[in-house]
Design a binder for these strands. Structure first.
Lengths: 335, 335
DNA sequence: GTGAAAGCGCTAACAA
DNA sequence: TTGTTAGCGCTTTCAC
């Protein structure tokens, strides 16, 4: 049996209230009593039971984090951000991966509620009405993150995706490219942020009096993109494309792998750019020109937002928008 | 104020014990009472307070996980394994990154103890006496994971590193290589598993009557290795090396980046192999021949081990050794 | 400055 | 089958 506050009180010959007072510094205690308590704590190796403490103070110092898959690079960066600033404020994080299941997200939401978490960060990749509804009715502070879907109404941290497309398009045009293919995913295009990105791409193509060339594929993975490399190449040839702007790095890398394997040189024969700056992008040869999304910051800002609300420092519910960076690397070059 | 067991009891017109019995299925309850309770739970949206429950049952259903850096690929895979099997047994994980600080590891260990975790998995990359000591004295089940340091005495999950080196050496020799350079890190070689790997490498070189050629560098990163690429190349030329076996994938990739940039073709001019199978390794071109360490399984096995002990299914304290795989890819070829 | 006592929400004897 | 009650370990009035 672990040592409790009673044991300390007995040894220090004071009441448990006094012990509580010294360990919490909540009320003045005579120097002598304090000394005796501290000594007893030391000798007995007493550590307060946080569970009991939480029960009475109703503060769990816990933030629940639900992610799609912790094994995913960008997810782990977000978690890193959450954890690091949470730690600074003495908050622990309890985490769960949903692997794209709305049911699992729901289960975690409920679980976290029973665990008395003080805030929840849900970094989802799916869109589910029941989940959204549940969140809205929850009396717990929630930050909803979704890098694909556009979900208005929830407290979130935004990325300026349109601005990012602007930056990339301006850069490609500056390099002399005019025949630019936009490679995107076909899934739920209307509901996702792709909608805005595609709009912006079209706008830029219009500006240079070029017909937009958009190719949609049904994968978001390197392997999947590699497999349709032939189809993409056909579109490239048919439209005399000199640069491909991919809506995600994975597509860009899958495509580069394909081109590399059939002997087409990037960027000499064609420029490729991505979106997201996944960890491979800077390591891959040629390193990928892409848009860097500040994942760590997203996590950090999310939790800070929750903490602020909890501590009533800030009740403003405005959404935060984080800056995005263009990473000029070697998969693109002047034409 | 959240709804409590009392509210449910009142509404269902039974005592709180009956409510408890229904929600825990711990004792027979009359069909009628059960129905009324269930109805009240439904109507009120009651969710039991896990904190209060933990306090009395002394079961937190929490496993503490301390890692070096959750943003690290292999770490996130381990966590994924821990989380997934933990979930199956209804355990939640609470996580903390130590970023290589022994002090932080210590802080988490203590914190987790106060949080009443039922087990701790410490995935460290450092070696610290105080931490080890603290773990040994802790009355909580701990699994200690360290992919670098060899720490006998603690409950852990081992990888058969020697066997892995055997596999790789046999493969390289089978490809016709005789002049094989072993590229390793110089830090703490005696305390780490590198000690065993180097021994095995030497043994194989002896078998084929070749002098071992070992080059130690003081980095474990892609960038750092890239920066000493020139020095490594000199060693390669001086010793007429045809294959480089790197003790970590990062070194292999850093070296391949360097060779790529100065126009040396891998594997045509030289074969390179790694160790670890980090995420880039299979994506990089040429894809890297390497040793795949089963990170997910390490996590899964670690938590299962803890859970077994907690549930007294298994008190055997034997260490578990996981298999390792040789990934034959395109950075190595026949000479 | 200190201690007694109530109570956080729940489980688990115990008695009925 | 059910209700009463005693805690789990702690914080926090309240009275002294």
């Amino acid at each position: 049996m672990a040592v409790t506050i009673k044991d300390v009180a007995k040894m220090a010959e004071v009441s448990i209230s006094t012990v509580s007072r010294v360990i919490n510094d909540s009320k003045p205690v005579s120097p002598d009593a304090r000394r005796r308590v501290l000594n007893a704590v030391e000798v007995l190796g007493y550590e307060p039971n946080e569970i009991a403490r939480s029960l009475v103070t109703r503060k769990s110092n816990l933030i629940g984090v639900i992610v799609d898959d912790i094994g995913n690079y960008y997810v782990s960066q977000i978690v890193r951000g959450i954890e690091e600033v949470g730690r600074m404020y003495n908050y622990d994080i309890i985490i769960g991966s949903s692997y794209g299941s709305a049911e699992t997200e729901m289960k975690f939401l409920q679980l976290f509620k029973t665990k008395q978490v003080e805030g929840i960060i849900l970094a989802s990749e799916i869109l589910n009405k029941d989940v959204i509804k549940y969140i809205e009715d929850l009396k717990i502070e929630v930050v909803y993150l979704n890098r694909y879907y556009d979900v208005p109404g929830l407290s979130t941290v935004y990325l300026d995706n349109e601005k990012a497309v602007e930056m990339m398009m301006e850069y490609l045009i500056e390099l002399g490219h005019r025949d630019i293919l936009y490679l995107t995913q076909e899934k739920d295009t209307d509901l996702t942020v792709e909608k805005y990105k595609i709009e912006m791409y079209k706008q830029y193509m219009n500006n240079i009096n070029k017909e937009p060339v958009i190719y949609k594929i049904d994968t978001d993975e390197i392997e999947g993109t590699y497999n349709v490399g032939g189809d993409i190449l056909k579109v490239i040839k048919d439209n005399n494309i000199s640069a491909v702007f991919c809506c995600q790095d994975e597509l860009a890398i899958g495509l580069m792998n394909y081109l590399s394997d059939i002997g087409i040189k990037v960027p000499d024969e064609i420029s490729i750019s991505g979106y997201g700056d996944v960890s491979v992008s800077s390591i891959y040869r040629p390193s990928l020109t892409t848009i860097k999304e500040p994942y760590y910051d997203i996590g950090a800002v999310s939790i800070r937002k929750i903490l602020k609300t909890i501590n009533k420092e800030d009740s403003s519910n405005e959404d935060i928008q984080l800056p995005i960076r263009l990473m000029k690397r070697y998969s693109t070059q002047k034409i």
